[in-house]
Design a protein around this nucleic acid. Structure first.
Lengths: 231, 231
DNA sequence: CATAAATAATGACATATATCAATCAGAAAT
DNA sequence: ATTTCTGATTGATATATGTCATTATTTATG
């Protein structure tokens, strides 16, 4: 472990990343050599859209949102990311710029690895390269969901899909503390915060979803899934 | 050339694909061995969402749309694809299903290559694998545009972005015959066909875009880009 | 050429959702 | 405990866009 490391998660983080399962010890070591960890407070920016993509990041603790910023301050939250997830933007092997911003939702730590050694390892380990392609394809499938939701669904459908995404893919529980404000929920769904509030109120009255600030509990999963499906 | 080949494009198509630039002759031959070509009429389906992803496709002539189908018949057109483009969906190395449908907009021919030899070549040629990652990242960047447009832009902004996409990325000209119906334009932008018609009429009166059925001519590119940017 | 069919265009109307302004509640600070 | 501040909530209103019905235009067909 290098002395730049802050948390004891860090030494192990590469080994625990599923995407790195095919790496040899020597290859892991190559990545670890130049790795360092940084701590972020809630609201702080880990990576900035438009900025240079010099490192890949791995969240080791906390919670972050990945969002694209439009002109006019209109954000869209692409995903909410928990620890042990690799963050590598589509600028990699393209323009080497960030195409999204990553912001901490809670106090978080992230491990940074320069792209060069990462690229070198991809070049010599084809199994890893295929895993990387699979990893990107998974992200693309998720984008299709986003696009399908935004293109034609009504508020209820979009919010239902967002809550199911948080429950199933992010927090893996029916009750969770999201660390997301109403404004964040709006940016996750492409609605306004007022509309989020109104739909949430409606569902609380109907006993479908209970919510208090950033805490959510899905009470009638089936109903919510039906609302999501039917738009 | 195998005897299943119909057009003389086919024998050369792999060599002309930019993505295949790093392949050796032997690797190209490996892909060519099991390659075959199929002809499609306008409106016919090349690949069906949900169906098995057994082959990758390369459009050799014509024009196709790649679209995702929602329950309730709500489509969204992700991209319009011209010849010499590889079509490989995100089900590759994941669930081996198609996550979108590909439909011919005009009479088209496509070359099909089984995924297995393709995967084998990826395994032995790391430069090719990196090119593949770059190719996927390019698609992801395009998805971000789609998402940004759908999340917060008004009709004029969305339609402007769509026309600029067609002019710059697909047809590479300010005048083009799109082969897209008003319904297709609606599905490309997440609007209704009536709204597309109304905005197009408005722009014809203002001299920004001229249009007759599936023919478009962008007259004031600057204005259109401003509309697209400001939403 | 005449007819049918499909697609495009128009207009009237409904409604979902954004916008704006005001109030409320809980957290943080003094 | 009191004040301050931020975010949540509510309500009134405006408006963008969808829906539906009708007519026009183009394309296909016998």
């Amino acid at each position: 472990m290098t002395e730049t490391c802050i948390s004891n998660n860090c030494a192990e983080c590469n080994k625990r990343l599923d995407l790195f399962r095919s790496l040899t010890d020597a290859q892991l070591e190559k990545l670890n050599e130049s790795r360092f960890e940084v701590k972020f407070g809630a609201g702080e920016t880990l990576l900035k859209q438009g900025g240079p993509l010099t490192h890949i990041a791995c969240l080791t603790s906390g919670l972050v949102k990945i969002h694209i910023e439009n002109q006019g301050g209109n954000n869209f939250i692409m995903s909410v990311v928990r620890p042990m997830t690799l963050i590598i933007g589509p600028g990699f092997l393209r323009d080497n710029r960030h195409h999204y911003t990553v912001t901490a939702l809670a106090e978080s730590t992230a491990c940074f690895i320069p792209v060069e050694p990462f690229k070198k390892v991809l070049e010599v380990n084809s199994e890893f390269a295929l895993d990387m392609i699979s990893f990107l394809n998974k992200k693309i499938i998720r984008h299709y969901q986003n696009i399908g939701n935004l293109a034609h669904k009504h508020m209820q459908g979009k919010l239902a899909e967002a809550l199911i995404y948080l429950a199933d893919d992010v927090f893996k529980a029916e009750k969770f503390k999201s660390h997301l404000s109403r404004q964040d929920m709006a940016e996750l769904t492409g609605m306004t915060k007022e509309s989020v509030i109104r739909v949430l109120k409606e569902w609380k009255e109907e006993g479908i979803v209970d919510s208090r600030s950033d805490y959510f509990e899905i009470l009638k999963k089936e109903s919510l899934m039906r609302i999501g499906r039917n738009g």
